[in-house]
Amino acid sequence: MRKLERKKAWLNDIPVAKYEQPIHSPILEIQNVSFGYPDKQATLNNVNLTIHRGEMVSIVGANGTGKSTLGKLICGFEKPISGTLLFNGKNGNNDSLKMRGEQVGFVLQNPNQMFSKHIVQEEVGLGLLHKEVSPDEVKLRVEQTLKVCGLYPFRNWPISALSYGQKKRLSIAAILVMEPSILLLDEPTAGQDYKHTTELMTFLESLQTQGITIILITHDMHLMTEYTKRAIVLSGGQIIADDSPAKILANTELIERANLKQSSLHALATTLHITDHERFVEKFIQFDREVRLNEQ
């Protein structure tokens, strides 16, 4: 029992970083958007959502709840049946894919679906070459982006020689070089181990500090809690929650309704008889980050 007390005391000692969400102008407003394929049940029903500049938001939900569809609507792969999407206050419903691509960069789940060149730097420069940017500037921007993504040493490598994690970063680089203001990632860490996940997410956080808005589509609850301050829960084609991840995970009823899986941290809190799950999770993550920072 003393042991448990000690643990609790130790837990209380960890300072929780006071975080205040800076209020920025909305970059994307989704208004009353519905979507469905013909002759089938609607996949999205009257969705309303505002995303602010510089936010990192996760969209979560079980399979088939419409999170990927929402992603496709945001990046213009599909057009809504009704409702509007506003980008910086302007109606984007009639944008061509190319125009939308300049605002929203979509990183597909499978990086192999994105590459059409053999060499790493050619792939990154591909989009720019089609934008009539001068060759010197293309070279400069490609090199900068490759450095940011930690792929500069591999710039002359064939893409097929890269590891999955490196390919993933390359697919992000290929999008990033186009300088979109919103970066949308579909299951960014699927199929990657802890080390690579951490690496990738730290990288995304650094992008966020540079002012890029990041939207993650995921069903990884830990990813959501650890890296995003705001999560949107989809269920049955509707947004059923829009809150901080800790609050969402603390709400058992919500979790059940959305068919989400509680992260193991919550299970741990239950085993330790800690009632305030939210604070426990927050503190755990804080501590975890410090340890990681010290290691680096």
């Binding site: 792969f77 894919l97 691509g101 960069g105 597909l108 679906q113 994105m114 591909l126 989009g127 186009m178």
Partner: peptide, 20 residues
């Protein structure tokens, strides 16, 4: 389906395949 996804992601990167 793959083809459509790939085509769209390439178009979003500015590689235009539409009638324009």
């Amino acid at each position: 389906r793959d083809y459509k996804t790939i085509a769209k992601s390439q178009q979003a990167r500015g590689i235009d395949m539409s009638r324009n």
